Computed example of a mutant assay.
Amino acid sequence: MKKVEIYDPAMCCSTGVCGPVVDPDLTRIASAVYSLEKKGFTIARYNLTSDPGAFVENEIVNQVLVEKGPEALPVVLVDGEIVKVAAYPTNEELAEWFDTTPADLQEKPRVRVSVNFGK
């Protein structure tokens, strides 16, 4: 089974899908990662803000940052090899790497919200 690692640029939260203006590409990749994890595939995201150690510990990613700077993020590795720099994988690429279909990558996390009006 393939292992995919996505090294994200600095973001305010683990997914990057927060704040007043949300990048649709971040929403898409967050849904794809969620769907793949739920199906048991090995995929990980590292955020430069919350997990800088992952960027230092991975020699390949560290070298990209030294040579190209943070503009090179996101960096995507498949089985330890760089497959994309400065761009997120498409759903088609993810589906190919994990031998699934792009339609299988569109599940969105369901979160139950309760509202308490002071009662």
Results as ranks from 00 to 15, higher is better:
P24L: 12
P24D: 07
D25E: 15
D25Q: 15
D25P: 00
D25L: 15
L26F: 12
T27E: 09
T27I: 15
T27F: 12
T27M: 12
R28C: 03
I29L: 06
I29C: 01
A30N: 14
S31K: 13
A32I: 08
A32R: 02
A32C: 08
V33S: 03
V33E: 06
V33P: 00
Y34S: 01
Y34Q: 00
Y34P: 04
S35P: 07
L36S: 02
L36A: 01
E37K: 15
E37I: 04
K38S: 07
K38E: 08
K38R: 11
G40Y: 08
F41P: 02
F41E: 06
T42A: 11
T42P: 00
T42H: 12
I43E: 08
I43P: 06
A44N: 14
R45S: 04
R45H: 08
R45D: 05
Y46H: 15
Y46V: 12
N47T: 12
N47Q: 09
L48M: 11
L48S: 01
T49L: 14
T49F: 05
T49M: 12
T49V: 13
S50Y: 12
S50M: 14
D51S: 15
D51I: 13
D51F: 09
D51G: 05
P52I: 14
G53K: 11
G53E: 14
G53A: 12
G53Q: 10
A54L: 09
A54G: 07
A54C: 06
F55P: 07
V56Q: 13
E57L: 14
N58Q: 03
N58K: 04
I60L: 15
I60Y: 03
V61W: 03
N62C: 10
N62P: 00
Q63S: 11
Q63C: 01
V64L: 02
V66Q: 05
V66N: 06
V66M: 05
V66D: 11
V66F: 05
E67K: 12
K68H: 13
G69F: 10
G69C: 07
G69M: 11
A72V: 03
P74E: 08
V75Y: 02
V75T: 05
V76R: 01
V76W: 02
V76H: 04
L77H: 08
V78W: 00
V78K: 13
D79S: 03
G80F: 07
G80A: 07
G80V: 09
E81S: 06
I82C: 00
I82Q: 01
V83P: 06
V83K: 14
K84W: 04
V85S: 11
V85W: 02
A86Q: 11
Y88H: 02
Y88P: 04
Y88M: 09
P89A: 08
P89W: 10
N91L: 15
N91F: 01
E93F: 12
L94W: 11
L94S: 09
A95Q: 07
A95Y: 08
E96S: 13
E96A: 15
W97K: 00
F98Y: 04
F98C: 05
D99I: 04
D99S: 09
D99V: 06
T100Q: 02
T100E: 00
T100P: 05
T100N: 01
T101Q: 04
P102E: 08
P102S: 03
A103I: 10
D104R: 01
D104A: 14
L105F: 10
Q106F: 08
